[in-house]
Design a protein around this nucleic acid. Sequence first.
DNA 1: TAGATTGTTAATCGATTAACAATC
DNA 2: TAGATTGTTAATCGATTAACAATC
Lengths: 207, 207
Amino acid sequence: MAADRLTLGVAARLSRYLQVLTQSKKMGKSSISSQAISEYTGVNPTQIRRDLSGFGKFGKRGVGYDIDALIDEVRKILRTSGTHNIALFGAGNLGQAIAGSSVFGDHGFRISAIFDVDEAKVGTMVGDIPIRHYSELAESVASEDIMVGVLAIPAEVAQRVADDLVAAGVKIIFNYSDALLSVPSDVTVHTSSPAVELLYALYFYLS
Amino acid sequence: MAADRLTLGVAARLSRYLQVLTQSKKMGKSSISSQAISEYTGVNPTQIRRDLSGFGKFGKRGVGYDIDALIDEVRKILRTSGTHNIALFGAGNLGQAIAGSSVFGDHGFRISAIFDVDEAKVGTMVGDIPIRHYSELAESVASEDIMVGVLAIPAEVAQRVADDLVAAGVKIIFNYSDALLSVPSDVTVHTSSPAVELLYALYFYLS
DNA sequence: TAGATTGTTAATCGATTAACAATC
DNA sequence: TAGATTGTTAATCGATTAACAATC
């Protein structure tokens, strides 16, 4: 059943449910209702139940969903049960903030390399991750099977690094700068745009 | 025409077009086609033209859209032409990275206050913004007409700050921690979840 | 049992897309 | 003129929602 590829919308929503489940587990809960997931994601509870019931009967009527079991099921559906290596570019304030947070680690992403061009930083550690020189990019991507590049660098150099990542074979880039990146069509770029989200939140607030 | 409230989808897409327009202008371009906007947003070019043509004939056939003029039009539609004040919580690595970037400023958001609880930081400056003590929150929100709170603080204290912001009357919160925040239904929370976006990018990459 | 919540149906609405005439 | 791109239509598909029986 449902052996087909997920639609983009379903995959995006399942990922968001997963985050709520992971965090709820951290907060000590063991089960959760579609209503509760809805409050944290803004997704209609009927749609949450619909999204999940397409893959099996994971819930208990009158009770809700067991969090541990549901995390396993959603990870299976998204096929992201393993660990995936990411490389972080830029060891400035933003890079260090990212390296020190659990925002990627909680979802099975491991920061396996941090790159910078500042010779003074190269060789030092951020937590337990050593900072390497940018010139080692291609080699590290290949030897550590890095699937994602995270750009915590100035907008002026973002395109250059994106080009080098593409040349090294990386297909997914997460861009914290506000630069617009041009990449081949088989490469996915996600740009962090907090202001964009605030803009439309503001619209609904002002209307 | 189209005096009704925008749907959530249209408002979200218009905000994203605005970011592409703003960045394209920075890069020195003066006009842009729906095809080019599509490449940077992933939104189908037909839909972009459709979204825009609902409000007027902004483009020139055979040429595209004038960037300056379109920025003005989209801002009018989103009713976000003015400047809006935001308060930043946390002057650590992440807070300093946000304060030092143009990610909010480019879209008419001004960081008018940074709060921290560390007495050693209070009174010092980040760029041209002074760090204030957290106890001044309510007073500052009222006196500076702050509409948005940005949380660059540990997950453990995020709910506490969210509660205080709600009590002070703030209706929009941008949350960089991975905490799940409970707020009244008239308050909007946006949580930055880079890992969530990577999760579903990975799904389509692995499939 | 009584209350709560899932799983599912059916109806509606908005998003998506291809196609193409209009026109710069 | 020729090429490019908008504005718009029509058709399809997925998202959204209310409602409610099933059942824990």
